[in-house]
Design a protein around this nucleic acid. Structure first.
Lengths: 139, 139
DNA sequence: AACTTCTTGACTGTTTTAGTCAAGAAGGTA
DNA sequence: TACCTTCTTGACTAAAACAGTCAAGAAGTT
């Protein structure tokens, strides 16, 4: 029912790396890629998408790179994953909730369970900030 | 991060249908397929796999079909989904928990969050029985 | 014997995921 | 100015996963 998607893992780890480098000026894509073991070319795509989220921004040129717009304690895992899932249906994470997926018009017996699951997951995502993860990393 | 898989939805709905038909003798694949809007041929594959779980069994011949081995209140969503995920790694639902997936040997800052998520999901799966779903259906 | 059912494994088409590539735009440095 | 280095963009491709199909056969029922 659940499957890890590399793109989303990579995105999380990339933002996490930016959080680690906070205050040191922009971080180059190549540095992030190396530190977090992410294929460089793929990361280029991911980061440029992620700019649309308002969480990160970039600067070009010799001392360029990516950096966080908000402080680590104000960026949650939920922010990132919700953004990557796209705005059209941030809740389609589980079956039946999506209208187009349920042949019973969202009124089947499973619907409430799927909603519970989704809420449980996002509760965790939304309460986990980049700062929390930094604290774990350095504990 | 999450995506519904039709096969698993179908499996749940098929077992649910068997629960609805409990006590009326075996239910034909074709009846299940129609009642739950599942492609017949695909359902054949799914049900025959599901026999290995010890939750359902089948009978051939004119009055043949599938039926539950255990009563609805002893079959949980978790039983079904765990079985379909395969025994090799029932926990690989989220990233980083799987050794083969994490370049940091499961010791990255995200690992504990993924575990929390997995536990939260399966807590719900494991406490939801077919009987609970029947109660919802008929309420 | 005839019928209906499940059984099995191989097969196929489509979609998603993962990742690559190359040309270019923009900023920094000298 | 010239020349770096960086990000930027969209198109492209390979591989895997998913969804679904098919056909021949085995096994009960009547």
């Amino acid at each position: 029912m659940l499957r890890p998607q590399k793109k989303q893992q990579y995105a999380l780890r990339a933002v996490f790396e930016l959080a680690k480098q906070e205050g040191k000026g922009p971080t180059k894509i190549s540095e992030i890629a190396e530190a977090q073991a992410i294929p460089l070319r793929f990361l280029e795509v991911i980061l440029s998408q992620l700019k649309g989220s308002g969480l990160i921004d970039s600067k070009r040129g010799f001392y360029g790179g990516y950096y966080l717009i908000k402080p680590p304690h104000k960026i949650t895992v939920g922010d990132i994953l919700r953004f990557l899932q796209g705005p059209e249906d941030p809740t389609h994470c589980t079956a039946c909730i999506s209208k187009t997926n349920c042949p019973f018009n969202n009124s089947c017996a499973f619907a409430s369970m799927w909603k519970e699951v989704k809420d449980a997951i996002f509760k965790i995502y939304d309460q986990t900030t980049m700062q929390d993860l930094l604290d774990i990393e350095y504990s």
